[in-house]
Design a protein around this nucleic acid. Structure first.
Length: 486
RNA sequence: GGCGGCAUAGCCAAGUGGCUAAGGCAGCGGUCUGCAAAACCGUUAUUCUCCGGUUCAAAUCCGGAUGCCGCCUCCA
């Protein structure tokens, strides 16, 4: 089976073959560290986390590089407003980013370089571009001359004439062509600076990625990713810089994730319609957010809402409820069929088929939505066997089913928690949101158990209906009553 | 103004030329249950925004219309 990836540059799905047998190099543009991350950042992180996990699951050795932009206008502004150093600002938001991503279960990239650690490399790259006649200095700035790079526009499907025809480009008389972009900016009063052959200044935004990707992955590497808003101009400019300097292809496959929307509009800082990751994780389990994000294909827009998250929550509860059943079986607490059960072979075949269908879906441009569908199929299969009075599948095969679910789920970053803990935390969180007291709920349940034991059904039903009116749903089992929030 | 994307059930969402149009949420009927809930079984799109075309065959390809969105300025 071959992995196929939609390449932004060709606008087609292409077969993926890494440059080096058995190894994959991937570079993803990270955040500018000037504020806390919102759900849009979470999507990008979760999508590329899933992609790298799958590439590893498939057996490739993956080097995953994700940078931090720690020198930029917005960081400087923020530092000024807060009367702090830019390092302190960047440091703070990088730390917060790492915390958020940690909570989301995003695995750390192999390397997380920062722009300011790579100034020397950037100066060298600008020097090369000047030597090649692809850039020109102007009053302490250095600009890239887009007309001198023949492939300019190839990633985003634009050409210079069309772009110039559109009148929305600000005029800067220092530039020879309005589309030229700054490689190096002379520093103004009070701004941070580094010494350079062109005077004291600081790098333009696009430069760092060209330098850092080459440093960790080489002149040509396999996959370059980021949010779709980076296609133009950021990634187009990276190509111009890197390929202009080396004469070699920068990245062989370009992957861009779609936006998170709110009421059909892009979630963004400037529109002010964003939700921070940490706020959402107060309301929902991280895996619920992951499920919400991965239930759509990574290139489609996804509309963020409380209702949508709650649907994902119901789905995740379905997974964990089944995992709990399987875990209880593994612990030996459930009476089971003998090891020679008649349907063992069938179940084993289904489990193998689950693996295959999962890989088939993921091989088709990381179709996590389809893959998750298969996971739900497996849940139904297991539940159906367990629903029978005498399951005709033996314990060891159910144990195997649990392992398979955990194995496949882990590729998507799911099922990282013990099912009992997950379900308990879900109850408590949801009760908290509604201002309900867990102790009071459990007291009423105990009272109802006594009523049921005494067969005073009226009182038992009164308690249950009262709780149900508040959204507390009871589930009576022979040995205990559990509860959940609707 | 230039360039591009999307439109599938009540909602979310896979499916990109040919078997019964995945899956989730919600709903309905049944099994189970003291009654419920969960789970399971069944059911909910003769049809994929609309109009034309290509084809033996189209949600899937082509043309047009309508609607929504994005990039072109910082943006995941």
């Amino acid at each position: 089976m071959t992995l196929r990836i939609y390449n932004t540059q060709s606008r087609k799905k292409e077969e993926f073959h890494p440059l080096q047998e058995g190894k994959v190099g991937i570079y993803v543009c990270g955040i500018t560290a000037y504020d806390v991350c919102h759900v849009g950042h979470a999507r990008s992180a979760v999508v590329f986390d899933g992609i790298t996990r799958y590439l590893r699951y498939r057996g490739w050795e993956v080097t995953y590089v994700k940078n931090f932009t720690d020198i930029d206008d917005k960081i400087i502004d923020k530092a000024r407003r807060e009367n702090a150093g830019i390092n302190a600002i960047a440091e703070r938001y990088i730390r917060e980013h790492d915390e958020d991503m940690g909570m989301l279960g995003v695995a750390r990239p192999t390397f997380t370089p920062r722009a300011t650690e790579n100034i020397d490399g950037m100066i060298r790259l600008v020097t090369t571009l000047l030597e090649k006649g692809l850039a020109y200095p102007m009053d302490g700035d250095v600009y890239y001359s887009v007309e001198r790079f023949p492939g300019y526009g190839k990633l985003s499907g634009r050409n210079l004439e069309d772009m110039l025809a559109g009148a929305r480009i600000d005029v800067n008389e220092k530039k020879r062509n309005p589309l030229d972009f700054a490689l190096w900016k002379a520093s103004r009063e009070g701004e941070p600076w580094w010494e350079s052959p062109w005077g004291r200044g600081r790098p333009g935004w696009h430069l760092e990625c060209s330098v850092m990707s080459q440093r960790y992955l080489g002149e040509t590497f396999d996959i370059h990713g980021g949010g779709e808003d980076l296609v133009f101009p950021h990634h187009e400019n990276e190509i111009a810089q890197s390929e202009g300097a080396t004469g070699k292809t920068l990245a062989r496959y370009w992957i861009h994730n779609g936006f998170v929307r709110v009421n059909s509009e892009k979630m963004s800082k400037s529109l002010g319609n964003f939700f921070t990751i940490r706020d959402i994780l107060q309301q929902y389990h991280p895996e619920v957010l992951r499920l919400f994000l991965l239930q759509s294909h990574y290139r489609s827009p996804v509309d963020f809402s409380d209702a949508a998250l709650n649907e994902a929550r119901q789905g995740m509860n379905r997974f964990y409820s089944t995992l709990k059943l399987l875990r209880d079986i593994a612990a030996g607490g459930t009476e089971m069929a003998p090891e020679t059960a008649e349907k063992d072979g069938e179940m084993k075949a289904q489990l193998q088929s689950l693996r295959e269908r999962f890989c088939e879906a993921m091989d088709d441009d990381f179709n996590t939505a389809r893959a998750i569908g298969h996971l739900f199929d497996a849940v139904r299969l297991v539940n159906a066997s367990l629903a029978e009075k005498k399951p005709d599948v033996s314990r060891s095969v159910f144990v195997q089913a649990g392992k398979t679910l955990l194995e496949i789920g882990s590729v998507l970053g799911f099922f990282r928690q013990e099912s009992d803990d997950y379900l308990r935390r879900d109850r408590e969180r949801e009760a908290g949101k509604r201002g309900l007291s867990v102790a009071e709920i459990e007291r009423l349940i105990a009272e109802r158990r006594a009523a049921r034991a005494a067969k005073t059904w009226q009182r038992a039903d009164e308690i249950r209906n009262g709780l149900a009116a508040q959204g507390v749903i009871l589930q009576d089992a022979p040995d205990a009553t559990t509860w959940t929030i609707a």
